[in-house]
């Protein structure tokens, strides 16, 4: 289940990219996350699993402060990115989100051309000095998202005209075009068919070379296939966190075992 060697894993363990301590989240009076602490390693795929409404997506959205846009949402606790508290007053959420890319559950390409979709991030952050520069960035992002060959002849057609799987890979290309350090994926395959899912999973494995990838998924098989670390959430608690292989074979917590064997969820 886990093809990482012991050495590789130890190397990654020392290298925490994101560190969360005592994170609590309230939607109005609803206490959605309860005292969550976790360390997310660099160049690793970490998956969040758990039944619907367990808080895994909410926690993911804490990591790039997307919850700021929800009026009734209140987050307390500490989330450190490279040792810097992301909720500190000095941190600009706009710049933070440029560092931490995000891919959503439903493919959400902008109603623009394929090219403009990918170029959007680099444009607003001023990453390209010239048109040629921008072309190179767009091509690189599309290649890494494994969609270049399919769209290179129609870069100026609307991104909304692509199939669901292509749209999702376009959204991944859009997210990595800004050269983020962390990539958050919120159930990126839930709207895709098995073939498109396989393509995206392969892509996730590729991306691990450069990024810390955090993926929320409903599919335990997917978590087992793509991730090195797995965190199990239940009713707002982080129940168990550890190496994917270990968590799936010998879970420590009885709740994890119940979920994995289908008794809760």
């Amino acid at each position: 289940m886990n093809d990482m060697t012991k050495v590789e894993r130890d190397l990654n363990m020392s290298d925490a990219k994101i560190e969360a301590r005592g994170v609590n989240l309230h939607y109005g009076t609803n206490h959605a996350l309860k005292d969550v602490s976790i360390e997310i390693a660099d160049r690793t795929v970490t998956s969040f699993i758990g039944p619907s409404g367990c808080g895994k997506s909410s926690f993911l959205r804490c990591l790039n402060r997307m919850n700021d846009t929800i009026d009734i949402c209140r987050v307390t606790g500490q989330i450190m990115l490279d040792g810097q508290d992301i909720n500190a007053a000095s941190v600009d959420p706009v710049q933070l989100r440029a560092q931490i890319g995000m891919v959503f559950q439903k493919p959400n390409p902008f109603p623009k051309s394929i090219y403009d979709n990918v170029a959007y991030g680099p444009k607003i952050h001023g990453l390209a000095k010239s048109k040629a520069d921008m072309d190179a960035i767009v091509e690189k992002a599309l290649r890494r998202a494994a969609i270049w060959d399919e769209v290179k002849d129609r870069l100026h057609e609307p991104g909304t005209g692509l199939s669901g799987g292509q749209q999702q890979r376009l959204c991944i290309a859009r997210a990595i075009a800004t050269e983020p350090e962390v990539l958050l994926m919120d159930e990126p395959c839930s709207a895709l068919d098995p073939i498109a899912t396989a393509q995206v999973e392969e892509l996730i494995d590729e991306l691990r070379r450069d990024y810390a990838v955090v993926i929320v998924t409903h599919s335990m098989q997917q978590a087992a296939r793509v991730s090195q670390k797995t965190a199990f959430f239940h009713l707002g608690h982080l129940v168990e966190f550890g190496d994917t292989g270990r968590l799936f074979t010998t879970p420590n917590d009885p709740r994890t075992e119940s979920y994995l064997t289908g008794r809760i969820g």
Partner: peptide
């Protein structure tokens, strides 16, 4: 759709940029 708004914000667009380049054209 809210998803377009989220998509632009998650890329690090400001609310003004989101409005001008994504919401308004749509």
């Amino acid at each position: 759709p809210q998803s377009l708004r989220d998509g632009a914000l998650a890329l690090g667009a400001t609310r003004g940029e989101t409005m001008l380049s994504v919401l308004f054209p749509a």
